[in-house]
Design a protein around this nucleic acid. Structure first.
Length: 827
RNA sequence: GCCGGAGUGGCGGAAUUGGUAGACGCAGUGGACUUAAAAUCCACUGGAUAAUUUAUAUCCGUGCCGGUUCAAGUCCGGCCUCCGGCACCA
């Protein structure tokens, strides 16, 4: 046994021990309180970097802590393995995506094991395994049956040279990332999940997510984007068609001076039939609108007129690029006086402006306004609604329009249905068959999984690779038995990650995606830890999936993640660590030099988890120093004792250490108080605030105190030491396990209970009270704790330093904060 | 433009409910140990002024301006800067 601290030796030893003893594998146990801790599983595009390690270290501290608190902890891990990077690697390195992916998985898995995280490896999930993606297909069928999946034409980025679809991140300034050709937009049928069916529930559910960061909830709320208003029916002056429009400002309806259709609005097709001369312009506008950069407003006059149903006024009908077809009704009423966009458009095309809202107390003239007045105000030019405030106007006009049957109340969402089609190889094949005779048919459940063929050539050119794999493509129609073709789209990888947390709950899951009884025991995830970049999509899709699966009767919960912790990035020299910036730190080298515990300690100590972490190697040295100090005082103590004495004195009880004892000497009482204070501080920092940095700081203070403590052979010192090791163990588990065993324990430290503190031992007998004169610190006095304010005042007023200030003045008032501070107000 | 978040020493950060601003650590300075270095240990370490035999004393200080309060990093009003999200959503 070495008397020096060699992290690499002890770390490997205990990692092996934990794995062999299956210390962190868990089973459903109704008699025990469960705790499901989940970290976002790694994407298998390379090896782990410091950011991952930060994520998993945060989770690991919580998992180990909860275990010591007596919870039945589920702490699983897996691999998010489908996706575009594997195809890119296939093209660049001439390697099969599967081979490349599994190589990465093996690499990451061995990294995770070398880091000693407390995972239950028996529950591992790999999303590109057929046993996993089979269930993506199965859910697809179930949701299809329920009418939650449909197919429609939709636009995608298209490279005309490579003849392939591009993901947004493959489009660089409007050009193909591979060949540099200008990217165009192509429309073709794709598969959609009806997330909008759940828009309202997804929105309302946010309110109940008490353990989620406010910022994430806000982002999801904005993303769902609910707005309430009226749908008003305008009609063409020749009565040939109705044009419903959505507005959140029915109070401005008398101010509408023209109506605008999106170029993609269905009515535009009818208009073109009657006015073929605008066809070219409209087609051009449609194309322009699909581009992201387009900002200049452009319009085409349709030649038609529309009647405003509230006053029968006629107004022109325009087609313009600033109206989106996907939102509302694809048409708007334009109120240039009170909407900035309409204002700009009206100015450009010389359209009338009609003021219907005044700022209260001042006048607004249509000829001299420079921008739209979008605030609240008082109504004018609005018939019987004049002189109402805009707020009242909204209510009254809405009521009146509903009565007149010209409008109805409407709630709109920005949230769109989720397009899950990807024209890619490395993903879950969508289980659909296209038959010329029978049409679009789902693959029968018994035929699942539809296996992704291997040895498909990935070239990055000429559409989806599956289109060229005839063994995959050709099949029999499940209905007529004739020749048919398989769907070649694969699923968005976000489908994989929308339910993986359910899969983890069951160990035996051969014939089901997960065991419902297991899922009902373990779910919801009590604590989810991951990057804030997933604040919207992944978390929203998972919430959607959970609700959809609940409606399929597969689970009982409404929300998948009870608490969410979003950790900050790891930065170095002021920039996010990335290969392109050349500031990546190689974790393997750090571990070799300092050990896993020092790396964990640094990550946890340098900043609270929610904020960005600045990588500084000097900081690691500081933690290493601290760990050596812990090592030194413990090993020193062990050397004082013979092994027999250790066994006799220690670890008789598995509950917390005794360190509560009456009749102690002063310095012992001091030690007792500091130990109890540290227990409280560390427990609360972990549990209530995730402030691991301050928890470690208080442990450092305890170590500093123990360093100076004179009676290193006393039993209270031994108890303090063992509590220190227990409190430190979730943060730096390996060194603590080693020291714990050396101190004489037989079992793992993680089978011991977390220490608890007693309030009575937190109290000081003597306290330092700050004396302020008019709020400024002037003196400090040491007094017995719990003294009355009058007594403190008397003592303070007798002090020389204080008399200097009070001489010749009168004391007006004093404020006393018990055992802390007295403020004497003079003159 | 809209919606969030954040600004504290040379640096990372602490101050949890309005009550000693700067815990803990890094870096730095001085000293001990050593033939020497590393390691370790001890002390100091926000700024300014005064004093220095000693102790210290006074003022300033949490992005800026103002307010509330006996007391403000913390609360209120108005700005500035940075970071993140959304963005022609009617």
């Amino acid at each position: 046994m070495h008397s020096n601290y060699y992290p690499n030796i002890i770390e490997k030893k205990w990692q092996k021990f934990w794995e062999e003893k299956k210390l962190f594998s868990c089973e459903k146990d109704e008699g025990k309180k469960k705790y499901y801790l989940l970290e976002m599983f790694p994407y298998t595009s390379g090896s782990l970097h410091i950011g991952h390690i930060r994520n998993y270290t945060i989770g690991d501290v919580l998992a180990r802590y909860k275990k010591m608190r007596g919870y039945n902890v589920l702490h699983p891990i897996g691999f998010d393995a489908f996706g575009l990077p594997a195809e890119n690697a296939a093209i660049e390195k001439n390697i099969q995506p599967r081979e490349w992916t599994y190589r990465n998985i093996n690499q990451i898995r061995s990294q995770l094991k070398r880091l000693g995280f407390s995972y239950d490896w028996e529950r591992e999930v790999i999303t590109c395994d057929k046993d996993y993606y089979k269930w993506n297909q199965w859910f697809f069928l179930k949701l299809y049956e329920k009418g939650l999946i449909y197919r429609k034409k939709s636009a995608a980025n298209w490279c005309p040279n490579c003849q392939t679809v591009l993901a947004n991140e493959q489009v660089m300034n409007g050009h193909c990332y591979r060949c540099g050709t200008e990217v165009s937009i192509k429309k073709f049928p794709q598969w959609f999940l009806k997330t909008t069916d759940y828009a309202e529930e997804l929105l309302r559910g946010i309110e109940n997510l008490e353990g989620w960061p406010f910022a994430v909830k806000k982002m999801q709320t904005n993303w769902i984007g609910q707005s309430e208003g009226m749908e008003i029916k305008f009609r063409l002056s020749d009565n040939s068609a109705q044009i419903p429009v959505f507005t959140t400002r029915p109070d401005t309806v008398f101010g509408a001076t023209y109506i605008v259709l999106s170029p993609q609005h269905p009515l535009v097709r009818e208009i073109i039939k009657k006015k073929p001369q605008i066809r070219g312009k409209v087609e051009l506008m449609k194309k322009d609108q699909l581009k992201k950069e387009e900002i200049e407003k452009k319009g085409i006059f349709s030649g038609f007129e529309v009647i405003n149903p509230v006053d029968q006024e006629k107004m022109p009908l325009w087609i313009a690029n600033y109206v989106l077809v996907e939102y509302g009704t694809g048409a708007i009423m334009a109120v240039p006086a009170h909407d900035q966009r309409d204002f700009e458009f009206a100015k450009k095309y010389n359209l009338p402006i009609k003021v219907v809202i005044h700022p209260s107390g001042s006048n607004l003239k249509k000829d001299n306004i420079k921008e739209a007045y979008t605030e609240e105000g008082v109504m004018i030019n609005s018939a019987q609604f004049n002189n109402l405030t805009s707020e009242e106007g909204r209510k009254e006009i809405s009521k009146w329009m509903e009565k007149e049957k010209i409008a109805s109340h409407k709630v709109n969402y920005k949230l769109r249905d989720w397009c899950i089609s990807r024209q890619r190889y490395w993903g879950t094949p969508i289980p659909i068959i296209h038959c010329k005779k029978c049409g679009v048919l789902p693959v029968p459940e018994g035929d699942l999984p539809v296996i992704l063929p291997s040895n498909v050539k990935i070239t990055g050119k000429g559409g989806s690779p599956l289109n060229k794999a005839s063994s995959f493509l050709d099949c029999r129609c499940p209905q007529c038995g004739g020749q048919a073709k398989r769907e070649t789209d694969t699923m968005d990888t976000f489908v994989d990650s929308s339910w993986y947390f359910l899969r983890y709950t069951s160990k035996n899951r051969g014939h089901l995606p997960f065991d419902t009884r297991e899922a009902n025991y373990w779910m919801p995830v009590d604590q989810y830890v991951g990057g804030v970049e997933h604040a919207i999509l992944h978390l929203l899709y998972s919430r959607f999936f959970t609700k959809a699966l609940r409606d399929l009767g597969l689970i009982q919960i409404k929300e998948p993640f009870k608490k969410l912790l979003t950790q900050g990035m790891v930065v170095k020299d002021g920039a996010k660590m990335s290969k392109s910036k050349g500031n990546v730190v190689e974790p393997g080298k750090i571990i070799e030099k300092y050990g896993v515990d020092a790396l964990r300690g640094f990550i946890l100590f340098a900043a609270p988890p929610q904020i960005d972490l600045e990588w500084k190697e000097e900081g690691l040295e500081g933690i290493e120093r601290f760990l050596k100090r812990v090592w030194k005082i413990t090993v020193q103590w062990i050397e004082f004792k013979n092994q027999k004495a250790i066994e006799d004195s220690l670890f008789k009880e598995t509950e917390s250490m005794r360190i509560y004892r009456p009749g102690l000497k002063n310095e012992e009482k001091n030690l007792q108080r500091i130990v109890h204070h540290t227990i409280k501080k560390v427990s609360e920092d972990i549990e209530k605030r995730y402030h691991f940095n301050t928890a470690l700081a208080s442990l450092m203070e305890l170590v500093n105190f123990l360093y100076r403590y004179p009676h290193k052979k006393s039993s209270i010192y031994r108890e303090a030491l063992s509590i220190l090791i227990l409190l430190l163990s979730p943060f730096t588990p390996h060194i603590c396990e080693e020291l714990w065993q050396r101190m004489g324990s037989k079992g793992s430290i993680f089978t011991y209970r977390w220490p608890t503190y007693k309030k009575e031992f937190l109290k000081k007998e003597e306290v330092t009270v700050v004396v302020q004169i008019n709020g400024k610190l002037r003196d400090k006095i040491n007094v017995l704790a719990g003294e009355k304010d009058k007594k403190i005042e008397n003592i303070a007023l007798k002090r020389d330093k204080i008399r200097k200030y009070t001489r010749g003045k009168t004391v007006k008032k004093t404020f006393y904060v018990p055992d802390k501070l007295i403020n004497i107000v003079i003159e």
